[in-house]
Design a protein around this nucleic acid. Structure first.
Length: 316
DNA sequence: GCGACAG
DNA sequence: ATCTTGTCGC
């Protein structure tokens, strides 16, 4: 029975979720724990990971969860895992982790069992870390549960604890000059919750970087900059691209779904493309591709996974 | 009623 | 989050 991941959970459920966040928050380590994190060139760092969940358009349940591992500093994909999942929890601001994290944990766990040598030394997460309503965003959640260093990277400012995307904030953004420039995001309590980072020259919108787990904010910002070929850090960007491609290949194109099994040959026309605007260095080979099918039974397994943490996350 | 709203 | 190719600009 596929549950609908829509609507707002009852207050009772949100209370349980808040309690779990409060408990897990006590386990967050917001400082550097690894030697490479303090090295000026991050020497010793060889693998950076990224996770993402992409959705099927008209469907509030079907999604693709992906985990990729890239070499550092080359930023070439060494591992890719895309899997279709059935979401059960709806999206509620402040509780993103309860919607996405269980599947990401599964992916990390499978990598740990089957290809432990490819385990990333740090994970970039699409969303916030301690820059959060209760100081425990999805990046902290994933970090604590997997015990991996995690960095929260959000594309929009979460206006919390006095932070506002107002005129002053926009002016600060305008003053960022070169890629790598940043300014602190100070919460009402005087604590620095994160940094707004211009991820590369000529990027208008900044990234909002915050600590997820086992890493200082300074190292998180520096490494994020070091992983940006474009605005979005390469690990997250690759996870996003690949999960969306996986959905397209699996469910077909919107306009013409399963009715056309054709492998369009004219699409391979080697047309010269304008160098400037595009991306994709092209020529990507996938040495250690590890893709999974398995659309069935995900809902039940999610329940097991969530309940095994602390037994508080079920919302049925 | 108005504003806010990570993904 | 998702819908979207080519196009304009540096």
């Amino acid at each position: 029975m596929a549950r609908k991941a829509a609507g707002r959970p009852p207050e009772e459920t949100l209370s349980l979720w808040k309690r779990e966040q409060a408990l897990l928050k006590t386990l967050v380590v917001d400082r550097d724990t690894e030697a490479w994190q303090r090295d000026p060139a991050f020497s010793g760092l060889q693998r950076v990971g990224g996770v993402d969940v992409s959705f099927v358009k008209g469907d509030s349940v079907s999604a693709c969860a992906s985990l990729v591992v890239l070499s550092y500093p080359e930023l070439e994909v060494m591992y890719e895992d895309c899997r279709m999942v059935s979401l059960t929890a709806p999206y509620v601001s402040g509780f993103l982790a309860f919607r996405e994290v269980p599947f990401l944990v599964d992916a990390v766990q499978q990598l740990r069992e089957k290809e432990p040598r490819l385990m990333p030394q740090v994970l970039f997460v699409d969303g916030n870390g301690v820059l959060h309503h209760r100081g425990f965003g999805v990046a902290c959640h994933l970090g604590v549960v997997t015990d991996l260093p995690c960095i929260g990277v959000a594309k929009k400012l979460l206006q919390v604890d006095g932070l506002e995307n107002n005129a002053l904030h926009k002016e600060k953004i305008r003053l960022l000059k070169a890629g790598g420039d940043s300014f602190p995001l100070m919460g009402g309590s005087g604590t620095v919750l994160g940094m707004a980072l211009k991820s590369h020259d000529h990027s208008t919108k900044p990234l909002y970087v915050s600590v997820g787990h086992k890493m200082s904010l300074e190292a998180a910002v520096r490494l994020t900059h070091g992983c940006c070929k474009f605005r979005i850090p390469e690990p997250v960007r690759q996870a996003d691209i690949r999960s969306r491609d996986y959905i397209r290949r699996t469910l077909g194109v919107q306009g013409a779904p399963a009715l056309r099994p054709e492998r369009s040959k004219k699409a391979q026309r080697p047309k010269a493309c304008p160098q400037g605007a595009s991306e994709e260095p092209a020529g990507l080979s996938l040495p250690r591709v590890h893709q999974d099918q398995g659309v069935g039974g995900t809902s039940e397994r999610r329940m097991e996974a969530t309940q095994s943490w602390l037994g508080l996350t079920a919302w049925y």
